[in-house]
Amino acid sequence: MIDDDVDTTSDDGRDETPNERSDRNWSELMQEFRVLQTGTQIMAGFLLTLPFQQRFAELGPFDHVLYLCLVIFAVLVTLLALAPVMLHRILFGERAKAQLVHAASAILILCLIAASLLFVGIVLFVFDFVVSPTAGIWAGGAVAVLVLLLWTVGPRLLRNARDRAAHASPTTNASKT
């Protein structure tokens, strides 16, 4: 007998209700946000201390603008990372978990994009100031290439590995994450 509350439309081998799936996905998203918040909070703290350093006055106009852009990205990532918590608190008890999961997933992608730009900018900023503007461009460009590879090649490799495993063992369902 099949329970009507169990999600049988998924092919990932899990017997869970839509509410259980939403709860699991919400927990996974919150853990991903925790990881993101730690790194970006450290970067934001680093950025906020810079104007109080003596050598900050040595920065040229480009570096001042770049610095302010980095502060804006750090604040953007921090606020975006707090948004799902705020949404959850406001909508708590209104049976909107599936919608919260969907919104939090989209917000997390935006956070990761903004954090990627933040890290590229920080490397550009530091190398520009410590070594030279040319070194800053090269170092920032290298990090940008790494980010693009992680966002494009990494998922492609994982999908290919999943597909190869599925073809090698067609009776085993690969877990969706």
Rank of each mutant, 00 (worst) to 15 (best):
M1A: 14
M1H: 12
I2P: 15
D7M: 09
D12P: 07
E16D: 08
E16L: 15
T17Y: 05
T17W: 04
P18E: 14
R21E: 07
S22V: 00
S22F: 10
R24M: 08
Q31P: 00
E32G: 10
E32Q: 15
E32C: 11
F33I: 01
F33D: 03
Q37W: 01
Q37M: 12
T38A: 15
A44M: 14
A44T: 09
G45P: 05
L47M: 04
L48T: 13
T49I: 13
Q53P: 01
Q53E: 14
Q54M: 10
L59M: 15
G60P: 04
V65M: 14
Y67V: 04
A74N: 05
V75E: 02
L76Y: 01
L80K: 05
L82Q: 13
P84A: 08
P84E: 02
L87A: 13
L87R: 13
H88K: 15
R89S: 11
L91G: 00
F92Y: 14
G93L: 00
G93I: 02
R95E: 10
R95T: 08
A96F: 02
Q99T: 05
V101W: 02
V101Y: 02
A103Y: 09
I107H: 01
L112G: 12
L112H: 13
S116Q: 06
L118Q: 06
F119T: 10
I122A: 10
V123F: 08
L124C: 06
T134W: 09
G136T: 00
I137D: 04
W138E: 07
A139F: 07
A139T: 00
G141V: 03
A142F: 11
V147W: 12
L149S: 06
T152R: 13
T152Q: 10
P155L: 05
L157V: 12
L157W: 04
R159K: 14
A161N: 08
R162Q: 12
A166H: 07
T171Q: 12
K176C: 05
K176V: 10
